[in-house]
Every structure is written in structure tokens, then in C-alpha cells.
Design a protein around this nucleic acid. Structure first.
Lengths: 189, 189
DNA sequence: GACAAAACGGAACACTGCTCCGTATATTAA
DNA sequence: TTAATATACGGAGCAGTGTTCCGTTTTGTC
């Protein structure tokens, strides 16, 4: 049982860091140098690593509430929408929104590199079950064919959102829409 | 008018470098350290930079002939296959083959910052017209709906192939297949 | 063989991520 | 209040990148 509670300056710094990281992420993307975030927060790099051992931990902390909102929207949409497929569409739209507005996040999500495993794991643990529920409902309703798994679909969507976001020739949403259409059960035999 | 022709050792080194780079790319991906390629070729890093000022130049040179093969296969498939859509499928399959076997190349295809612009441009110049031809033929044959552009489709496919290739839960081909299915013209109005 | 142009090699610089430990501070007990 | 101790902090320092620069070596020509 921990008798001592967390020190006040540690708590303060954690908040400062989250704010600084959020600010830097919108400016320079989630790949911004750690030193830049440290400077912005007015702390040493050691402090960042103590609070958030990996970069992914920091990213997760910054975006946790938004991921949570996305996860909670799933069942809600399923209850409210016209059909399971409609709910799935709307949910995917939310997910894409989230990915493209945080620039670089989609890249980080697919990165197989050294330190993003935690981010990967967190997203998946939290969102894959939600996506699976929507998918299953649509299958049960006969709107889409079986065989596609939530993990794969989500990673596919994430991948489609990767890349520079200022290219008018490439709109991730159009391709995601194509992917969803490809999910539909064939009309004729 | 350049009186002198290129020196013999320079030509020799260029070939050595291309071979070394090709070998290293399949081992460590296109992001392999320059020093590793230099060591493999038995030259200094300066020599690499002299022959290929940017990493993209090197990558382009190494994969040029494979891209060429893919480009040439387009019209051939269109002539031989049962239908334009079938040809498109087969061509996309070839394209995916190319992307996944050279792991990391898909990353290069979408990479924004580092300097893959040359590779990007080459890919696009060479392959987009081929893809467009197949796409148009399938539209004309009434097999798929209009509105999808070759550039966007190719980038989408490239993005879907991004990521670690040893994960049984994620098979790029399944998702690409979904994407192609999404292209199809709806059967019933 | 002598000479200049071309090419080479790799040390050196700049910029990353990340660790480590001496110093400073907050909390608690006396 | 003061002393003791756990906790947290800062940033120098290490390791691994890409890239440049220039003294040295090789090549081609006369």
C-alpha cells in the first residue's frame, strides 16, 4: 500500500507536459523531437521519459479521451442508426476524422518501428471490439458478407489514412468508402 | 560537349552499388542505413552520395526495371485476359506482389518528407497511365462504376500494403480485394 | 612518365532518441 | 521548525542516423 501520494510538482509537470505535447503535435506532428516538447514545457528530457517511457505512451495520454469517445460512440450509433451498416459507416467516418485531423497519427499507428507498440496495442484493445460489434451486427442483418475481421478492417482503414493530408488527388475518405462498399454482400447469387 | 567519357572505376562502382543496395533493401528495407550499403559495396559513404545524391535516386535506380516490367504487363494483360476487370485484377495482383516482396517500398510510395519525391514521381509517371488504361477499359465495358482515378487507387493500394508483413491477422491482399470489389458497378439500380 | 581532372574514402558535423546520476525539492516525522 | 528521506528534476553524454567536405588516390591524356 503506497503511503505517500504522488508529489505535487510531479502532478503539475504531467499536466504541463500533456499540454505542451498536444500543442507541439498539432504543429510538428506526433514525430516531433522529444527535445522540442521538453523545451516547450520548460522541463528536461529526463522528465518526459520518466512520465512517459515511450513516445507512444505520450501519444496515448494526449489522445486518450478522444479514443474513448470514439469507442463509446459505437454502441450508441448501433442503437440509433437506421441499420447496422449505416452505423458502421458513421462510426468509420468518426474514426477517419480522428486519424486525419491529428496529422501523422495514422503513420504512427501503422509504424512497425521501435516504440509504437503501446499505441498500437491501446488503439486495438479499445476500438477493435467496438468495430467487431458493428461488423457482426451488419453480418447478422445480412447487409454484408462474413469473413472480414475487425482488426484487419481497422488496420486497412488506418493505412488508407496514411500520408500527406494536403494532396487534393488523394482523399482517404473516398477509398475508405470503396472499402466499405466492397464489404457488402453481393446482390445476385 | 563533354570530351571525356565517364571513368571506368566510376562505372564499376555504380554497378557494385546497385547490386549492394538491392541486396540490402531486401534484407533491411529501403530505410537501411547508408553506411550499411556502403560497407556491403566496399566503398565510402561519399561515393554513394556522389552517384546518388538522394536516397530516392538510389531506390529508383534499383527498382527501375521491376517497375518497367509491371508497366509493360498492363497492356499485355488487357489484351490477353477475359475481361478488362479481370485484367485489372491481375495487374493489381502484380503490383501488390511487387510492393510486398520489396518490403518498405510501400512506405516510400506514400512517404512525404524525407526525399522520396523522385521515386514517387517515377512510379506515378510510369504506372498511373497503365492503371488508368485498365480502369478506363473496365468502365467502358460497364464492369465498374466511373469516378475513381488511377492515382488515388494506386496510392490506396500502396497504403494498404504498408506495415509489417509477418502478421497473419493482416493480409493486404484481402483488403485490396475488398477495394476492387467496392469498385464494381452495383448490380441493381 | 608527367600532369590534371575525376573519383574516392572516411573523418567530422548536425540532429536524432534515450539513459544515467548528481542535484534539488516535496513530504513526513520528530 | 527542522532534519531525514523518498521522489523528482535537469541536462550532459552516449549511440545511431544522414550529409558534407576535403586531402588522397586513381584514371585518362599528352
Amino acid at each position: 500500500m503506497p503511503a505517500r501520494r504522488k508529489r505535487a510538482d510531479a502532478l503539475r509537470n504531467e499536466q504541463t507536459l500533456l499540454a505542451a505535447a498536444a500543442a507541439v503535435f498539432v504543429t510538428s506532428g506526433v514525430d516531433a523531437p522529444i527535445r522540442e516538447i521538453a523545451a516547450r514545457a520548460g522541463v528536461g528530457v529526463g522528465t518526459i521519459y520518466r512520465h512517459f517511457p515511450t513516445r507512444a505512451d505520450l501519444v496515448v495520454a494526449v489522445y486518450r479521451h478522444q479514443v474513448e469517445a470514439c469507442a463509446e460512440a459505437g454502441p450508441k450509433l448501433l442503437a440509433d442508426a437506421e441499420s447496422p451498416l449505416a452505423a458502421l459507416r458513421q462510426w468509420v467516418d468518426l474514426f477517419v476524422d480522428f486519424l486525419v485531423t491529428k496529422h501523422g497519427l495514422a503513420n504512427a499507428l501503422q509504424s512497425d518501428g521501435s516504440g509504437f507498440d503501446a499505441l498500437h496495442a491501446y488503439f486495438l484493445d479499445r476500438l477493435v471490439p467496438v468495430c467487431a460489434q458493428l461488423l457482426d451486427a451488419a453480418v447478422d442483418a445480412g447487409e454484408i458478407g462474413p469473413g472480414t475481421r475487425a482488426y484487419e478492417l481497422m488496420r486497412g482503414i488506418g493505412n488508407l489514412c496514411v500520408g500527406r493530408d494536403d494532396d487534393p488527388r488523394y482523399d482517404p475518405r473516398r477509398l475508405v468508402e470503396l472499402l466499405i462498399r466492397g464489404l457488402r454482400r453481393p446482390r445476385s447469387s
